[in-house]
Simulated assay, not measured.
Amino acid sequence: MAKRILIVDDDPAQRRILEETVKRFGFETRSTHSGEQAVEILEGPDRGSISLVLLDLVMPGMGGMGVLERMKGQAGAPIIVLTANGSVDAAIAAIRLGAVDFVIKPASPERLEVTIQSALKIEALSDEITRIKKKTEGTLTFDDLIIR
C-alpha cells in the first residue's frame, strides 16, 4: 500500500501541482485548503493513514505556524513546510515547532522528492529506535510491532 501525503495549501493551482507531483513519486494524496481542516484530519480517526504532511505557511484563518503549534508534541506524521514567503526567522520558528524541513516554493520536483524521502526515512528510523528501546526495557507491545 502506498504511503499517503496530506497536502495543505490554500492556493488551488499550487495544491493541484503538488498533488500531481507527489503522485508521480508513487504516493497517494489527500488535500485540504485550510489549517483548520488539516488539524481535523491529523487529530481525527484518519490520522494513522497520513504518512507525511506538506504544509503551506501562509493561509487564511489558521496558517501553517498555527497547525505546527497545535500538533507540537503529538505523535504523528512528519511535517514539511512549503512557503513562498521564506525567511530565516520563519524557517527557524517552523523547525522549533516540529517541522522536519522548510522548502521555498516553487520547489523543483527533484528537491521535493529528496525532501519527502528523507523525512520518511528519518521517521522510520525514529520508530525503529523506539521499538528497540521498548524491547530492551521489556515494554514492547503488539501495537509497537505494527508498521505504517
Score class of each variant (00 low, 15 high):
3 K>V: 00
5 I>V: 09
6 L>K: 09
7 I>R: 03
8 V>I: 14
8 V>A: 08
9 D>E: 14
10 D>F: 04
10 D>Y: 08
14 Q>N: 09
14 Q>W: 00
16 R>Q: 14
17 I>L: 10
22 V>Y: 01
23 K>P: 02
24 R>T: 14
26 G>P: 03
29 T>H: 00
30 R>K: 09
30 R>G: 05
31 S>A: 13
32 T>M: 07
33 H>A: 15
34 S>W: 07
35 G>K: 05
36 E>L: 06
36 E>G: 04
37 Q>C: 04
40 E>N: 10
42 L>S: 11
47 R>H: 10
48 G>V: 04
48 G>T: 06
48 G>K: 12
49 S>D: 15
50 I>R: 02
51 S>L: 01
53 V>W: 05
54 L>K: 03
54 L>A: 07
55 L>K: 09
56 D>W: 08
57 L>D: 01
58 V>F: 10
60 P>C: 12
61 G>Y: 03
62 M>W: 00
64 G>S: 12
65 M>H: 11
68 L>N: 14
69 E>V: 09
73 G>A: 13
77 A>K: 06
77 A>Q: 04
78 P>D: 02
79 I>Y: 01
79 I>E: 01
80 I>K: 00
81 V>H: 01
81 V>E: 02
82 L>A: 06
82 L>N: 06
83 T>S: 11
86 G>L: 01
87 S>E: 04
87 S>D: 08
88 V>I: 15
89 D>R: 13
90 A>E: 07
93 A>D: 15
94 A>W: 03
95 I>V: 15
99 A>C: 06
102 F>H: 00
104 I>P: 00
105 K>Q: 12
105 K>S: 04
107 A>C: 12
107 A>L: 07
108 S>Q: 13
109 P>W: 05
111 R>T: 09
111 R>K: 05
113 E>T: 00
113 E>R: 12
116 I>S: 02
116 I>V: 13
117 Q>N: 15
118 S>F: 04
118 S>I: 07
118 S>W: 02
119 A>I: 06
120 L>E: 00
122 I>E: 01
123 E>W: 03
123 E>F: 09
123 E>D: 15
124 A>H: 11
125 L>P: 04
128 E>C: 05
128 E>T: 14
129 I>G: 03
129 I>V: 14
131 R>G: 06
131 R>C: 04
131 R>I: 10
133 K>P: 07
134 K>Y: 08
135 K>E: 15
135 K>V: 13
136 T>P: 01
138 G>D: 13
139 T>M: 04
140 L>W: 13
141 T>H: 08
142 F>E: 15
143 D>F: 05
144 D>R: 10
144 D>T: 12
147 I>G: 02
148 R>A: 14
148 R>T: 08
